[in-house]
Design a binder for these strands. Sequence first.
DNA 1: GTCTATAGCTTGATAGAC
DNA 2: GTCTATCAAGCTATAGAC
Lengths: 214, 214
Amino acid sequence: MKVKDKSDHRTAKGNKKNLVSESRQQILDAALGLFAQKGYAATTIREIVDTVGITAPSLYYYFGNKEGLYRELMQTYSAKIDSVLESHLHTSECAKNRLKDLVDKIFLRVIEDKNFFRLMFTIYYGPSNGAPYCDFILYHVKIHAAIKKIIEDGIAAKEFQPGNSGHMTWIIRGVVQLAMEEQIKDDREKIDRQRLQKILDLIVDRFGRPPSIA
Amino acid sequence: MKVKDKSDHRTAKGNKKNLVSESRQQILDAALGLFAQKGYAATTIREIVDTVGITAPSLYYYFGNKEGLYRELMQTYSAKIDSVLESHLHTSECAKNRLKDLVDKIFLRVIEDKNFFRLMFTIYYGPSNGAPYCDFILYHVKIHAAIKKIIEDGIAAKEFQPGNSGHMTWIIRGVVQLAMEEQIKDDREKIDRQRLQKILDLIVDRFGRPPSIA
DNA sequence: GTCTATAGCTTGATAGAC
DNA sequence: GTCTATCAAGCTATAGAC
């Protein structure tokens, strides 16, 4: 990965000379990919700048240090998740459709920003690897709460059978979590979007029916 | 964390002088804890030996290098998981009980060897952090297959309603996965053993009943 | 804004005494 | 078996020219 041949730098630089510095964004993109793939600590400044085709001092010029670069990435993508969770609050569908819609939106976000979610999971489950603290628990809690709210609304509206909404929430979240994780790993049989929808149908359908006589 | 005062070493050594070297096991224990907490790459040889109260050459004497130490840990604990999955094959209970029993056994193993599972999840989801390759996918596949087998047996025995056993497997595995992950993280509301059992009852109960008329 | 050059530190690992 | 002492390599970050 280490490029010893310095002419590579000159070539890369030459190719982009006509553009008004897009280095900043290129650094962000390269860093996200490398952080997601190798982890925060394991990703070196050298690798990032070599990927972009610039030198270290340029990176420090834009972001101050490694932490500043990381923080900017977190801020950008966290805002995108928040917007999904907030946008979802203003629907007046039935509980079943709201649940399916929320899950689908979260899933689509994972597909689109796969590298960010990879990084998020990496840091959430497992050591932060020296990465500056970022409150990812918050997103698990927010998603959990959003699902639970819909289920409780569904019970209140007699759409779902009364029962332990907490348990029901864990079931939904388990499948969602697994689907996200399968999506993030790309070397295995996946739960794709359609399959997730079908599984959700199966669960939601049973939620709507009375339990067997104990 | 770095112990500068070298008298610490002497004290620790003095306390154990009467024991025929238990350094080896102490190194393994300390390394597992640190790898799980900080990751493979982020854990330094110095930290491990400082934790035990010995010096680096002793570690190299026993394990050759960092990778050798890691490999020995993986081998030891992987064997324990295998023994759970194998021991479970020889039961002749009903599907419902087999499912509950398998899940409970896996869950108990997670609780007992929490640090190993932490490390395993860390490396499985997320970058290996330079850790030598270890086929953790295998365990996910094995667990998945074991659950699916039981469900299909249950359907064949008319204990569960016919349906998509693949989807049913994902639902069970989602909850199991989430319970494991919650257990590994220790700063959040957990799915404890009892709760997992109740959730499983809820799911399995519904598996045994016909779907609503579409 | 981007470079060359390098300081200053931490790391995994080893030589060799006891 | 365990130590002291030390090395070479790799890291983040910066000084200063252009």
